[in-house]
Computed example of a mutant assay.
Amino acid sequence: MPVEDFFASCPRGLESLLVDDLLHAGARECRAIPGGAHFVGDWPACYRANLESRIATRVLWRVAQGAYATEEDIYRLALDTPWPRWFAAEQTLRVDLDAKNSPLRSLDFVTLRIKDAVCDRFRRELGVRPSVDTRSPDVRVQAFIDRHGCTLYLDTSGAPLYQRGYRQKTVDAPLKENLAAGILRLTGWEPGIALLDPMCGSGTFLLEAAQMVLGVAPGARRSFAFQRLRNFSSASWQQILDRARSAERSAGEVRVFGSDASPVAVRAALANLDRGRLLSAVQLRTADVREAEAPAPTGILVANPPYGERAADRDELASFYPALGSALKRHFAGWRCYLFSADTRLPGLLRLTPARKTPLFNGALDCRLYEFRMVAGSNRRPTATANPG
């Protein structure tokens, strides 16, 4: 079977986990770069990467590449690309452009010229052109330009892959699902180990963990853009999908726990779990994290605590964090606790020393995943004492 060139994007900091996913899906020659990984593979590998990767944001198929000096060179590259071979004029189109160190002055104009070239190619071959739909297009062309070269891709994913099709109800500042999945992987959690999110919000960590417990592939309940391409093999896809669904299993003993001080958040998490048919894998309750009890002698606690960008919020959190640190010491000896935050004051205000801190990005926000090993009496920062003389 012929191989193609692809690029999968992901949250920055999770590239090595993405490569693991791609290799598991059958990809070859994976090469990580900041924000993603290049790979080669056949179409079943592309289908599986979309279906099975918990870390990828999109999987893009490279269809053209060339040098440029002006916008017209990019137009010519796009015009020479056989778009009608891959999708129909009746399908709607969107063009997106990312650039790094490009000398061109107007990226909007470059985007327009690529769109014009795609439409002109259709007109030249078929006498008709696709319509543009910027909200929910059938086909998405992604262009990337750097200082000297332009690469054109067709998006095989459609909606971003972190949109699993489960979460409808949200509370403030939910994490994207692929970032939450990456954080769970970085903690070392696996089904069978007790897991608690005591500030669960709308339940993103719980949704990802429940899917893993039940063996549900992250893309098993959604559709993909590759299904709308002319070269789509429905037989190959159905075989892959059937294999994934046959691997699903029952929950067994519940080892995933969630709580939140807000009843509204708990109801949102319950609704999302119910929508995904994942409730059997999770226990949920309303509780303040400062009073939460460990549901097992050992396990992993993971949370995305609030971090304020306004001064008033930061002052309020400065009093919340010490109480949180005391609660972790009091109730979670024997647990490994992971807190994801953009607030660099977190360890100091918790009065705990992290065993590890992993740089990650939540969108453009520079964050850290802090690991605290809660062995009774060993984590508190020493306080200065007067010299008795």
Rank of each mutant, 00 (worst) to 15 (best):
S157I: 04
N101P: 00
P103T: 06
S102A: 10
D343N: 06
S157Q: 11
D96H: 10
D5E: 15
E90C: 01
G215D: 02
R351C: 09
P137H: 04
N387D: 15
R31A: 13
R185S: 14
V141H: 00
N304Y: 04
A64D: 12
R330C: 01
A88K: 13
S16I: 01
R147E: 15
Y307M: 12
G158A: 07
Y68D: 10
M374S: 04
F232I: 02
G334H: 03
S106P: 01
L273P: 03
V118M: 11
I193L: 15
T81M: 04
R222N: 03
P84V: 06
D260C: 00
A244V: 01
D98N: 12
L104H: 13
A355T: 09
S9V: 01
L179W: 10
L270Q: 15
A364Q: 13
P354F: 05
R275D: 10
A173H: 05
Q142S: 05
A318Q: 11
Q168I: 07
L126S: 10
V110Q: 05
R58S: 06
D146I: 03
Q168L: 13
S131Q: 14
D108L: 09
Y153K: 00
N50R: 13
A303V: 07
N272I: 09
T156Y: 12
V110C: 09
V213D: 07
E293K: 13
F372I: 03
W61D: 05
T344C: 00
R94F: 08
R310N: 11
R85A: 15
P82S: 10
A312I: 12
F6D: 04
L365G: 01
S341D: 02
A318M: 06
L284R: 08
T92G: 01
E71S: 11
